[in-house]
Design a protein around this nucleic acid. Sequence first.
DNA 1: TTGTAGGCGTTATCAG
DNA 2: CTGATAACGCCTACAA
Lengths: 345, 345
Amino acid sequence: MAFTIEDVARLAEVSKTTVSRVINDNSNVKSETKVRVLGAVRELGYTPNSIARALRIRKSNVVGVIIPRGIEYVFSDPFFPELIKGITTVLNLHNLNLHLVMSNSESEHRQAYSNLLKTKHIDGVILVCPRFDDKQYILKLRRASLPFVLVGRFPLEKVNYVGYDSKQGACSAVEHLIRLGYKQIGFISGSFDLIGGVDRFEGYKMALERHSLEYDSELVTKGDWTREGGYEAMCELLNKAKVPTAVFTANDQMAVGAVKAIKEKGLQIPKDMAMVGFGDTQLASYIEPSLTIVKEPTYEEGAMAAEMLVKLINDEEIKEPQVMLETKLIIRESCGSKMAKIMKG
Amino acid sequence: MAFTIEDVARLAEVSKTTVSRVINDNSNVKSETKVRVLGAVRELGYTPNSIARALRIRKSNVVGVIIPRGIEYVFSDPFFPELIKGITTVLNLHNLNLHLVMSNSESEHRQAYSNLLKTKHIDGVILVCPRFDDKQYILKLRRASLPFVLVGRFPLEKVNYVGYDSKQGACSAVEHLIRLGYKQIGFISGSFDLIGGVDRFEGYKMALERHSLEYDSELVTKGDWTREGGYEAMCELLNKAKVPTAVFTANDQMAVGAVKAIKEKGLQIPKDMAMVGFGDTQLASYIEPSLTIVKEPTYEEGAMAAEMLVKLINDEEIKEPQVMLETKLIIRESCGSKMAKIMKG
DNA sequence: TTGTAGGCGTTATCAG
DNA sequence: CTGATAACGCCTACAA
């Protein structure tokens, strides 16, 4: 049985109120008694019961982070540790605990979700890369009037999110290829249940349009964000009548798979096939040859989302409820140089 | 503002007690009033406040899972998702929530740890693969008389754990190589801050001893459980005067790194270098050639640890407080066949 | 079968 | 500067 504030009060010969004051604000307590109280606290090894406190002040200091993906997937994509690092760094700064929610099936997801809302032991929620289908849940969050922030843009009025411009990023990647002289540019897209998947596709088309290249659905395959998906998508592209000379993949994971497929086919990068990826993973630089990518600021995204949530929880004003971070094109080896291309052409 | 049990009581025209009974035991309530209460619950969308309940019954239904490793590492080793899947599956069965704790530095770890204990909002703890250094924390857990279970054997009296026999597993791996005719068997060990690291080393030596092969420290390098570590360790082995003809790695991750090093050197597996790994990752079967490994029952380990913890929390009797699971040698392609070896020799 | 009253450990209010 | 008292929302004797 642990000690309570009452035990401390008795030992220090003061009231519970005074002990509470010492523990919290420290305001208006004679330094002499303060010392006595702190002594008693130490002597007993007393620590406040966070549950009782939570009940009283209606704050649990716990933040839920919901990732609507399977555990396997979350652990296999290096995007998430980076994001979570950003989130936890900020949460730690504010002494907030993290309650991580992942699921293994849609029903489990639904369950976990409603548990989280119902139990009311959560001060706020960070919802990571919601799918369109998660809209229902977002609306529930809103109805529960629980502070929440999305990681990733979401097409809904007045939601708070931190994202980045996928469309613009994708566009710049493809334009990079175009500028290098590539014309038959393939695209391994992500799934379209994520706004990011749609945006990247839009960006791809936008780049083509800007440079008067015709969109050809033969050059496009849909992956599922995983390495395996990327591998299969690339195989598909390579087996078509019209094989691209360059390919843009909607994330790093799929790029890794695609590289594998290309190499297995006996082709060389960038000689036979140029590549641009999208992401920020160490993966991209480990690959042979190192991958030119659109860098997304993952750590910052997590950190800013957490900061925004902290403000929401503290009822502070949010100046910019919908933050769009910048992406950046990082040029490495996987596209060849302009010179090379011109000489070849 | 959410509804409380009192609102429900008023609407259903009963007392709080009755509502509570309906929500919980359901015992001794006239079915007629039960219906009325449930109607009121639904009408208001009432859900009990878990914090108030936790304060009252002194149970939070939250279990802490502590992984004394950095976030990066946890997310990069496929061992953990598998383990966590096992854990969560069982916890979900018992309606327990999971509070996942990882850290990025030793000080952060210490902080997270003591936070967890202090706040008292945790019914129990699963401590994953503790390092020897974590002994202090284990003793703290014990002093706090908080139910806890370790994942992985730990050399301490009367702790509850679920582990498997690393020494025996390692021994059988090396014996497999010996039986195939290999004599110069290298070992890429893990770090020795983990009991598993030490055990595997012991197993390696035991196998040699049993077959009257001399232990040669030249054939042993220490890795750090990561792919990069395995890569470097293998490079080191390959650059020594006495190069092994077969190598045993203490986990899958390092095996992947080692394979990379071997291939870069232009050597073939198993022709020039046979390999046995230790783990259970999909990795092992993805590698070319597929890897012979000592399979550890990771999912089961997690599940059983969770089950044991649930029992501890419910004050049920633990028949077997120290569970040792079996490992199993899975033979794939990375050691060649006996025939091949004999013919070669 | 139902209700009343008290308390889990805190913090907030208000009075000294 | 300090303390008595009343909540926070729930469960559980005990009484009816």
